[in-house]
Every structure is written in structure tokens, then in C-alpha cells.
Design a protein around this nucleic acid. Structure first.
Length: 584
RNA sequence: GCCCCUGUAGCUCAAUGGACAGAGCACCUGCCUUCUAAGCAGUUGGUUGAGAGUUCGAAUCUCUCCUGGGGCGCCA
């Protein structure tokens, strides 16, 4: 097609146009479009004469439309306001889209394997602390990115990096040894652990004299006191068990766990290496070990500034551990083409510094490390969630509340459902309602959490998309179609499609491209958008186009379309980590 | 002081540099004897923070301001 247009322009002595194709943005029309404003403008520049570009573009579009006639595979060609619109021969394309969605099934939208491995590190919760809604975004964003990258053809390693050492752990241990010795968590491990941490802080605030005891305990820790280390191991595991419960509920899993405690020593080795290479400057004991990155790079304007890689007392910092962790990841998986860090935006400079320092140290994989920043989840009034301030919404509470609320709605809407299924639906809906708002906005935008909108199951939200899936499923069930094999055979489209049908097919056809785009831009938002658009368009179809009572051949074709739409909706929900219930 | 992000309808957010800037929430008016009303239809609502520039064309790119948030040598 492009060839013919280019040839036409050559023949006419027109400048070579740069054609960019897009979809025709009108509902119910299916095809591709390009504009001739650029060509008209180029022509005007070359000619030097004053012309009305818009008008000339339309003339060109009309000329070319006339020249093309109606090419093979297209139904209609028209020129409108400077655009050349090529309408697909609907029947043929519609059939291709629906049949490929049905044939590929759960793999619809998935790209062929690339044979390339990437790692995504996400959800770095602190052991010995509460898990609250503020921690949820990294977990959900990271999980969804993994699903998207996997679908785009990558082999994905899902990594977690829980903070298992530091002052907060010592405070917790101190409180436990002094006031809770011998106690064990029963259920709600994470809540119990979090409460003890809050209690520790309260005690220390009420009686600052006790901080001496905490410092003493820290010293014992540093000297690797066996009793302290043992207790740390046991209690750390409690926390991790609690996290695992939480991740299970959220349908999130990990392939590998890294811990600061694993890389504390190797981090110090890395710092020694940096000093030996002359990259880091050792100012101990008067000062810390630092890397003057801008100076190393010969920059006159400050960009990377100075990274402190080791405290003056020789103890490790976050940066110390991150240097070693980055190495460890590439030791474990030397073939990583990318090593992503899903961490909040406040650490942008930190990662810029760490990765640049590793590059200075000569590690060629340093350029493959990439920070994927996201903004925080705050409470109304821009209040940051902090366990010490008590300004948190606990994840358990949110899940429980959302699930209960969803259960109440199911009871009301669909009382005949099997009780076990009601619970299933409540979980799917409750969790979907929690996840969707975290994914349906730019990573760099703050999510303000409030109970009312978190528990609103109406409108642009996961339950709406799930409901569209349920309706599609319901039609097929009533038609007696239990599996795809029971669908009427494919005979192509033998009637003129309604606008709602064309629109639905167009969206289904766009789904695989959106997966690619979401993967290359690392933006789950695109999937959240296409999922909602699919649901919305299916609902329009549902209202406009009866299926079960339609005459043949309409009925048979629409049943296949419904099955294809159900598949596309299910696949998009799956990428978001949201379950698609059969009924609700 | 330097750097990053952000600003779109009353609120929360969308929008490959392109056709009338779209949804949801909220408000108001209707629609269950038709494939599940967690739905649908309709009404109301905009000088895309301001100003300049690039471009045939700018919410989108550049510059200068302004608003809000964040970061900047021993916190994580």
C-alpha cells in the first residue's frame, strides 16, 4: 500500500512523504488512516508559494484515494479533511481476529519467546515491621510488570529484597527479649509482628533512657552474639512466613529472595575494591568512604554528586549493600539483558549513583540495571503512611474489608450462587478493586488512598471488567457451550456487522499490541486501559446486539465473537493479576 | 542554591505530535416480563497552571515563569 502511494508521489514529482499509519478514530469503523499534511507542507516549502496546507492535504488525499481505487483486502477508501482512510473489508478481518483469539486462547496476546532473561526486583518489605497499603504498590506494580514482560516474550526472574537488618530489627528484638520472651505468633503473624514494632517505638519514646539498652543490643549483634543471631533468624522467619501468606492472598509469587544480610559483607569487599581502583576515597576515620562521581566523570555541573559507600565506623549502608546486590544478581544470572528495580521515586538519585559507580568500576552489565520509579500511596491530605506515626492502613484490614464488602454485594445480587463460589467471587472482586486503582494511572503519579473509593465497585474499576467477563460467560453458558469445542463452527461473517460488533473486534485486535507497548514502556496503565475499554465495548455490544435470540447465521457468529471477547478480557485481567470470575 | 516529578471537567484520572480533549465519581432525569441493573441511556460540566517558541498541526516537544510534591556526603 505504502509502495503504491510512494510511487504515485514519485510519478507526480511530489516530495517523498513520510507516512505514519494510525487507526481510524471513529466508533464502529475499522481501518487505518494516514494524513497528508506533512506532504502538503513539504510541497509548500519547496515551492515557496503560499498555500492552504489543510486544503492542499485534502486535495492530495483525494487524488491518491482516486488513484488507489479500492485495493485488495479493503472495503472502501475515502479522503476526509486531509486524511486518507482505508476501511478494512470488515468480514475478512473480523473473522481473522476472532479466529486467532479463539485459537490462541490463554496465549492470545502473548509474543513468541525471545530467549532473553530479565530480572524484576520488587516489593522490598521490612521484616519485623507491619505490611501496609503503602507497601502494596511496589508489590502490585512489580508483579504486573513481570506478567507483562513474560507475555511480551521475556523469561522473567521475580526477585524480592526484604530488609532484614538494621536498627528497626534491633529495636524489635530488644522489645521482644525484654517484654515478650518466649511468645510465638498464633495467626495474623504480620499484624502481631507490626504491633510489637510499634510497641517498641512507643516504649522508647516514653522512656528515652532505654535507648542505651538498644545500643547495647546492637553491639551484641555486631559481635555476632549467637543468642541474638539465633533469635533474629527465628523471628525473621516469622515475618517472612507472614509475607508469604500475604503474597499468596494477592496471587503474587517470587522466584528468588535476596537479603541485605546476604550482601553486607560482600558489599564491604566491593567498597575495598573501589578504594583499590581509586574510584572511592577513604576518609576514615575522620569521614566516610565516598565516591565523587561527578569528579570521576569530569563533569563541571553537578549531576551524580557524591555517594557515601561506607560509614566512617566501617559499617555498611544501603548503598554498600546495593553495590554487592547488583553484582550478585549478575553472578546468579549472567545472561540478564535487564535488571529492573521497582522502587519508589525518592530513590532515583541513589540508583543513578549506584549504577554509575558500578560502571566506573568497569562492570559492563551496569548499564543493564534500570530503576523503575513509582510514586507513593498516601492518605488524604498527602499524609505519608508511616508505621511509627501510626498513619497506616494495614493490608490485612484492607483485604478483609474489601472482601467482606464484596461478599455483601454478591449476597444481594446473586443469592442463589453456591456459598463457596460466593466467597471466591468476593475475593476476586475485593482484590481486583484494590489492585486496579494502583495500576490504572501513571507510575509517577501519587495514589491517594481513601476507603470510600477503594471500596467503590462501580464505574471504571476492576469489578466492571469482571462483570463484563461474567456476562460473556453467561451468554455462552445459556447457549449450552461448556467448552470452546462446543462453539458453532466457523463460517466467517455472512451478514453486515453492527457498529458495536466492529468496535469490539477492533479492540480485541489491538490487545496484543498493547501488551508489547506496556512491556516496552514498563507501564501497566496501558493494560488497565485496554482491559477497561474491552469491557466497555463488550457492554455496548451486549446492549445493542442480542445473541441467543438472534437468527442464523448471526447467532453462530456472535457466539464465537462473545467467546473471543471473553478470552481477551480474561487475558487482560490476568496480566493485571486480577481474577476473572465465571459468575458474580 | 541545584536536580527530578507534577498541574487536563467540582473530584479521581485517560488521551502513538494529528480529526469534535475522553472516562469514572458526584449531581440531576429516565430504564429491570427481553443473554445477570456490580448495568444502560440522557442532562450538566474545559481559555489542558501562565506566557512565548518550534510545527501544516501542541495537553503532548523547547524555553521562561508560577503551583504542589520529592531528592541532594555517613536514613533506608
Amino acid at each position: 500500500m505504502e509502495e503504491r502511494i510512494l510511487a504515485y508521489c514519485r510519478d507526480r514529482g511530489l516530495p517523498e512523504p513520510r507516512l505514519t499509519w494510525g487507526w481510524i478514530p471513529f466508533n464502529g469503523h475499522w481501518g487505518i488512516a494516514t494524513s497528508f499534511f506533512q506532504l502538503a507542507a513539504a510541497e509548500a516549502r519547496a515551492g515557496g508559494a503560499k498555500v492552504n496546507v489543510g486544503q492542499r492535504a485534502n486535495e492530495l488525499a483525494e487524488e491518491i484515494a482516486a488513484h488507489l481505487g479500492t485495493p485488495e483486502g479493503f472495503e472502501r477508501v475515502e479522503a476526509v479533511k486531509g486524511y486518507l482512510n482505508l476501511y478494512f473489508r470488515t468480514a475478512e478481518y473480523a473473522s481473522n481476529v476472532v479466529e486467532s483469539a479463539l485459537a490462541e486462547g490463554p496465549a492470545f496476546g502473548r509474543a513468541p519467546r525471545l530467549g532473553q532473561r530479565v530480572m524484576v526486583e520488587f516489593s522490598q518489605p521490612n521484616t519485623h515491621k507491619a505490611f501496609h497499603v503503602g507497601h502494596l504498590r511496589s508489590a502490585i506494580l512489580g508483579d504486573t510488570l513481570c506478567r507483562i514482560l513474560e507475555s511480551a516474550g521475556y523469561d522473567v526472574v521475580r526477585a524480592n529484597y526484604p530488609g532484614d537488618i538494621g536498627l528497626h530489627v534491633i529495636k524489635w528484638l530488644w522489645n521482644y527479649m525484654k517484654f515478650h520472651a518466649g511468645e510465638k505468633p498464633e495467626k495474623d503473624i504480620t499484624r502481631w509482628v507490626g504491633d510489637l514494632y510499634a510497641e517498641a517505638n512507643r516504649r522508647l519514646q516514653e522512656n528515652p533512657d532505654l535507648e542505651g539498652e538498644v545500643r547495647a543490643l546492637y553491639a551484641r549483634w555486631d559481635q555476632r552474639d549467637p543468642e541474638v543471631r539465633k533469635l533474629w533468624e527465628v523471628t525473621r522467619q516469622w515475618s517472612l512466613d507472614g509475607f508469604t501468606e500475604m503474597y499468596d492472598q494477592l496471587d503474587i509469587r517470587f522466584d528468588v529472595y535476596y537479603f541485605p544480610s546476604m550482601v553486607e559483607d560482600s558489599g564491604k569487599d566491593t567498597v575495598d575494591e573501589l578504594i583499590a581502583k581509586g574510584i572511592a576515597q577513604d576518609e576514615r576515620p575522620a569521614g566516610p568512604v565516598i565516591v565523587k562521581i561527578d569528579e570521576q566523570l569530569g563533569l563541571t555541573q553537578e549531576k551524580y554528586r557524591v555517594l557515601v559507600v561506607l560509614r566512617s565506623d566501617g559499617t555498611a549502608l544501603y548503598a554498600t549493600e546495593d553495590l554487592a546486590l547488583a553484582r550478585l544478581k549478575f553472578e546468579d544470572y549472567p545472561d540478564l539483558v535487564k535488571s529492573y528495580y521497582v522502587v519508589d521515586v525518592r530513590q532515583s538519585l541513589h540508583f543513578l549513583q549506584v549504577f554509575k559507580t558500578l560502571e566506573l568500576a568497569g562492570y559492563d552489565w551496569a548499564g543493564r540495571c534500570q530503576h523503575v520509579p513509582y510514586e507513593l500511596v498516601t492518605l488524604p491530605g498527602n499524609v505519608v503512611m508511616a508505621s511509627r506515626e501510626g498513619t497506616v492502613v494495614l493490608l490485612e484490614n484492607l483485604i478483609r474489608e474489601a472482601t467482606q464488602r464484596a461478599l455483601a454485594v454478591v449476597e444481594e445480587k446473586n443469592p442463589d450462587l453456591d456459598p463457596a463460589q460466593k466467597l471466591e467471587v468476593a475475593k476476586a472482586v475485593g482484590l481486583g478493586a484494590i489492585k486496579y486503582p494502583m495500576l490504572a494511572r501513571e507510575n509517577g503519579k501519587i495514589v491517594t488512598f481513601d476507603w470510600q473509593s477503594a471500596l467503590d465497585f462501580n464505574g471504571q474499576a476492576a469489578p466492571y471488567i469482571q462483570y463484563a467477563h461474567v456476562r460473556a460467560n453467561s451468554i455462552l453458558r445459556k447457549a449450552g457451550i461448556e467448552s470452546l469445542d462446543a462453539l458453532p463452527p466457523s463460517r466467517g461473517v455472512e451478514y453486515e456487522l453492527a457498529p458495536a460488533e466492529v468496535q469490539l473486534i477492533e479492540l480485541i485486535s489491538r490487545f496484543p499490541k498493547e501488551v508489547q507497548r506496556a512491556a516496552s514502556e514498563l507501564k501497566p496503565l496501558h493494560i488497565a486501559n485496554i482491559a477497561y475499554d474491552l469491557a466497555k465495548t463488550f457492554t455496548d455490544f451486549y446492549n445493542d446486539c442480542p445473541v441467543l435470540i438472534a437468527d442464523e447465521p448471526v447467532r453462530s457468529w456472535r457466539l464465537r465473537l462473545v467467546a473471543a471477547a471473553r478470552q481477551a478480557i480474561a487475558n487482560s485481567l490476568n496480566l493485571l493479576g486480577i481474577r476473572a470470575p465465571e459468575a458474580m
